[in-house]
């Protein structure tokens, strides 16, 4: 299997397809043709994109099958007024190029206990759903997808899923008139239904508000906001209680990355705040923890006795963790 070197995978661009006027799909494989690290439906890949002197770290959902790690597929929407990462992917990257990427991490996994999975997606937000549906389909789980697009020329990915899953996929906007109504979709669902939403912030807020209005509890509502991914913010320092080492976390790195850079190890798995593997006890704190994970419960957050070093940060004068 391919292994990360200095935390990065070397991926060769095998194929580039334009699937809509704004979205390209990239098929990536290991430079040496070996198997890539496994991932689960909903995972994303952080791609290191050279833009001039800088390196942009953009997260893209893996949309290929989690059951075939001979290649990864990502879809990139060109955002002209963005931070130029997606523009560089569209204008500079060619088939045969080699890109560096992190290990896949999953912040948006499907629930293992759901009786029915209900997906609501908008535009390029469909990408994680590709791999999630593949996973659920092979497991024989019950699911349906509601996908809104801006018009017929933006519907190609939706048609692909419609071909795969038939009536379980409902498209909106591809005909220039039908509109997705979240309240209608969420109402009257049996117990144990889980909703997943990926799309523009407006769509996520709308689904969460509708679900709350219908009395859904948070444990059954899942969403992914790409702008929240990664761990960047103000610098802070942390003390590892066992070795006494004091480690500075820079604005561009996570606590976990800083600890690793200093030559120490912490347990980890997803590196995205979802799995809880890196959960570490907070022994001393003068300040506040900025919890960014999806793992700790609200009551755990309030006690400030635990932290997830892969995503969470702190605003503090002192932080000692049991590591």
């Amino acid at each position: 299997m391919s292994e990360a070197q200095h935390g990065a995978l070397q991926l060769q661009v095998k194929r580039i397809e334009a699937v809509t006027p704004e979205i390209n799909r990239y098929t990536l494989c290991a430079v040496d043709g070996s198997w890539l690290p496994a991932f689960s439906g909903g995972s994303h890949l952080t791609v290191l994109i050279p833009v001039g002197e800088e390196t942009k770290r953009n997260a893209y959902s893996l949309m290929s099958s989690p059951y075939d790690t001979s290649e990864y597929q990502i879809a990139v929407r060109r955002v002209d007024d963005g931070k130029r990462g997606s523009v560089a992917m569209h204008s500079s990257v060619r088939e045969g190029d080699v890109l560096l990427a992190g290990i896949p991490a999953n912040l948006f996994p499907v629930s293992k206990h759901a009786r029915h999975h209900l997906f609501i997606a908008g535009g390029v937000g469909i990408t994680p759903v590709f791999a999630q549906l593949e996973e659920l389909s092979l497991k024989g789980s019950s699911f349906e997808l509601h996908l809104a697009v801006r018009g017929p020329e933006h519907a190609a990915l939706g048609y692909e899923l419609k071909d795969r899953y038939g009536d379980r996929v409902t498209l909106y906007g591809h005909d220039g008139q039908s509109r997705l109504n979240t309240l209608d979709i969420l109402a009257g669902r049996p117990l144990g239904t889980h909703a997943y939403v990926c799309g523009p912030t407006r769509m996520i807020d709308d689904v969460v508000a509708s679900a709350h209005g219908l009395g859904w509890s948070d444990s059954n509502i899942h969403f992914e906001r790409f702008d929240d991914l990664g761990s960047t913010g103000d610098p802070f320092s942390v003390t590892l209680a066992r070795s006494g080492a004091v480690i500075e976390v820079s604005p561009e790195q996570s606590l976990l990355e800083a600890v690793e850079e200093a030559g120490h190890t912490l347990p980890y798995l997803c590196r995205g705040g979802a799995c809880g593997e890196c959960e570490t006890e907070v022994l001393e704190l003068e300040g506040t923890i900025d919890h960014r994970d999806d793992w700790l419960s609200e009551s755990d957050r309030c006690t400030n006795k635990l932290i997830l070093p892969c995503v969470s940060r702190a605003t503090c004068t002192k932080l000692v963790i049991n590591a």
């Binding site: 206990h113 759901a114 009786r115 049996p190 117990l191 144990g192 239904t193 889980h194 509890s217 948070d218 444990s219 059954n220």
Partner: peptide, 10 residues
């Protein structure tokens, strides 16, 4: 309740 997918927060 668990067999119907009810979660602890319900």
């Amino acid at each position: 309740a668990t067999s119907y997918g009810m979660h602890r927060d319900e």
